[in-house]
Amino acid sequence: MSRQGNRGTEGKKMNSELFTLTYGALVTQLCKDYENDEEVNKQLDKMGYNMGVRLIEDFLARSSVGRCHDFRETADVIAKVAFKMYLGITPSVTNWSPAGDEFSLILESNPLVDFVELPDNHNGLIYSNLLCGVLRGALEMVQMAVDVKFTQDTLRGDNVTEIRMKFIKRIEENIPVGDE
């Protein structure tokens, strides 16, 4: 039978170096293709978004996660289930805003940057910006508009890597009927 049969919720294990190097090749190519880092960041985000809107279905089909009813639940699922499933890491969730609509994911390790040293002429580059797009795209498909950005990055001299997520709104018009 096809790979379906031996594919559990764990997913197929693969060498993360191939993934890391492929991502590296992608980013360097974008840096060659576009003049400024801003544009590269934008392209990475866009690619991530396109991945996210597809990845969410894979995630929902494979994990038995139900609908999240608040942003804290969402944060938990992202950190403990999704990141674990796709990147093999579990970021910690911290820095909640008092209103509970904003939090940070602190990545102790980021598999995308295993071998990366950012050259001086790329100060504006947000190397892992693809992840922001993925998160935004995936959450949009479950009717949550969020703002995602890197606020700290070890590549750029910070102590930790921090992704800040801000809840904007429920996309009411897209909520499937009979759901909730």
């Binding site: 969410i56 279905e57 929902l60 609908r67 498909m141 479950v142 897209n174 499937p176 009979g178 759901d179």
Partner: peptide, 17 residues
């Protein structure tokens, strides 16, 4: 949805498919 000759089963995902 059940009839004499068949049953229709529907599953809607969180994304609405």
């Amino acid at each position: 949805l059940e009839t004499d000759t068949f049953k229709l089963h529907c599953y809607q995902t969180l994304t609405g498919i």
